[in-house]
Design a protein around this nucleic acid. Structure first.
Length: 108
DNA sequence: AAACTGACTAATA
DNA sequence: CTATTAGCCAGTT
């Protein structure tokens, strides 16, 4: 499997995340049938061009926070985009995972 | 080919 | 709670 095919899988999974829901990097990797590739999900998103149609903002780390390693400008943007989807952040900049984490294949 | 790097995570201290 | 460490593994140099 080529790297682009791997990334395509990640993008396909991320595209399925419903509006107002979020998923973790590890979760995306697992749903793409590529466990332990959480870092690659990050790599995939890093090189994702603008206007790709992939809702990258719905991917957060295991703590439910915007990844601190992403580009500083993107952090604010990501939070803003999510809040526009009614995703609520707590006082420490994290989302309530049990509440907003996407459960694949469940009714929305 | 080898070393370095990193939008990650889980386990320890 | 924060900080560090170790495991991970593909992309880049």
């Amino acid at each position: 499997m080529t790297s682009s095919a791997r990334w395509a899988r990640f993008y396909a999974v991320i595209r399925k995340i419903p509006r107002g829901r979020i998923a973790t990097y590890g979760q995306v990797a697992r749903l793409a049938a590529l466990p332990r590739h959480a870092r690659d999900v990050g790599h995939a998103l890093r090189s994702l061009p603008d206007g790709s149609g992939v809702p990258w903002q719905r991917v957060v780390n295991a703590k439910g926070e915007i990844s601190p390693r992403c580009h500083p400008y993107a952090q604010d943007l990501q939070r803003d985009l999510l809040e526009r989807e009614n995703v609520v952040f707590d006082g420490r900049g994290r989302v309530c995972l049990p509440r907003f984490q996407w459960k694949a294949g469940r009714p929305t």
